Simulated assay, not measured.
Amino acid sequence: MQNRITQLFNIQYPIIQAGMIWNSGWRLASAASNSGILGLIGAGSMYPDVLREHIQKCKKATTKPFGVNVPMLYPNVEEIMNIIVDEDVKIVFTSAGNPKTWTKWLQERGITVVHVVSSVKFALKAQEAGVDAVVVEGFEAGGHNGRDETTTLTLIPMVKEQIEIPLIAAGGIATGKAMLATMILGADGVQVGSRFVASNESSAHQAFKDVVVNTKEGDTQLTLKELAPVRLIKNKFFNDIQELYKSSPTTEQLQELLGRARAKRGMFEGDLEDGELEIGQIAGLIHDIKSVAEIVEDILIEFEAAKKLVTTF
């Protein structure tokens, strides 16, 4: 299955395992890469020395390409970028910031750069900044999201119409049918996040994985737009947010409620009441916890079956 994405990353299948905070350590990334897709380490939940350790362990666990996802809003981003160069990582996905800040610097050091966007406007800015590809993420996605609430199936063709660089679809993709649908709409590949949360190799707490597989349609909602839009499973913390909104809170009051390390508390430590539980809408279709290899195989088998079904119409 060769196309612009498989050639760009030197992988077998045009699928990227998303670099998610508190879920995407070296075990997940290496298992993904060993399955023929691109694995990503999520640097957003790691101090620099921890990231270095995960990169080194990932190198020992796979000989295949892997990358690091870097949210650029973190204060130690310069140290993180230097570690990535020191450790000879060849692929970086940037997000939550201006792609012009680091793209040229990374490319001058032989690194392929992909930027995550949630709108046509930011896709064009990323292309102008010279990135090698963009991840175009729709409203259905888990974790931090775009404010415009544009869904994946409308966003992908709108971006495709405007850009020339490779396009990776994200948001609500956990199956082979969804992969085919977005590629028909113009995507060159897909990024899968939530489905890999519910994998054996995910670094998420088992309690969080169990909640994900029991999540139903309507159990998640986008909130905290005043800070950074995030899709959460509805729990006590989410209800506390909704209660605070009734009083028209200031940004400072919302920040005070959020506090520090709320996502770690929920997804990594397993506090299902007061933790932040980030997941995509597609969780309603995730019913089991499997190995990464099994998940990738399921997606590919369904993708090929769906292609045959489409040709019968």
Score class of each variant (00 low, 15 high):
1 M>Q: 11
6 T>W: 04
8 L>E: 05
11 I>Q: 11
12 Q>G: 06
20 M>K: 06
20 M>F: 04
23 N>K: 05
24 S>E: 11
25 G>Q: 04
26 W>Y: 15
28 L>N: 05
28 L>G: 07
28 L>P: 15
31 A>R: 05
31 A>N: 08
32 A>D: 11
36 G>M: 04
38 L>D: 10
38 L>P: 13
39 G>V: 04
41 I>R: 03
43 A>D: 12
45 S>W: 01
46 M>I: 09
46 M>D: 08
47 Y>G: 10
54 H>E: 15
58 C>G: 01
60 K>Q: 15
63 T>R: 06
64 K>T: 10
66 F>L: 06
68 V>Q: 01
69 N>W: 04
69 N>F: 03
70 V>D: 06
70 V>L: 14
74 Y>S: 11
76 N>Q: 12
77 V>C: 09
81 M>V: 15
84 I>C: 09
85 V>D: 05
87 E>M: 04
87 E>H: 00
88 D>K: 12
92 V>A: 03
95 S>E: 08
98 N>K: 07
113 V>D: 09
117 V>S: 01
120 V>S: 07
122 F>Y: 15
126 A>L: 02
126 A>D: 03
127 Q>H: 06
134 V>D: 09
135 V>E: 02
136 V>Q: 09
138 G>R: 00
146 G>R: 00
146 G>Y: 00
149 E>R: 10
150 T>N: 13
152 T>E: 03
153 L>W: 12
153 L>E: 04
153 L>P: 04
153 L>T: 14
154 T>N: 12
154 T>P: 08
159 V>L: 05
160 K>W: 07
164 E>R: 08
166 P>C: 08
167 L>M: 07
167 L>Y: 05
168 I>E: 08
170 A>P: 15
174 A>T: 04
174 A>I: 05
175 T>F: 10
175 T>M: 06
178 A>H: 13
179 M>A: 14
179 M>R: 06
181 A>S: 09
181 A>P: 03
182 T>W: 01
186 G>V: 03
188 D>L: 01
190 V>G: 07
190 V>E: 04
190 V>Q: 07
198 A>F: 00
202 S>N: 03
203 S>C: 14
204 A>G: 10
204 A>F: 05
205 H>Y: 11
206 Q>I: 13
207 A>M: 08
209 K>F: 09
210 D>R: 05
211 V>D: 11
212 V>T: 10
214 N>V: 00
219 D>A: 10
219 D>N: 14
221 Q>G: 12
223 T>P: 06
224 L>G: 01
225 K>I: 09
234 K>V: 00
236 K>W: 00
237 F>K: 02
237 F>E: 02
243 E>L: 13
246 K>V: 13
248 S>R: 10
249 P>R: 01
250 T>L: 06
252 E>L: 12
255 Q>I: 11
256 E>H: 13
256 E>R: 05
258 L>T: 11
259 G>Y: 02
263 A>E: 08
264 K>Y: 15
264 K>P: 14
265 R>Y: 10
266 G>V: 04
266 G>S: 11
267 M>H: 10
272 L>M: 15
272 L>C: 12
276 E>Q: 15
282 I>E: 09
283 A>W: 00
283 A>F: 00
284 G>S: 14
289 I>L: 11
292 V>E: 06
292 V>Q: 07
293 A>I: 02
303 F>C: 07
308 K>T: 10
309 L>H: 12
311 T>E: 14
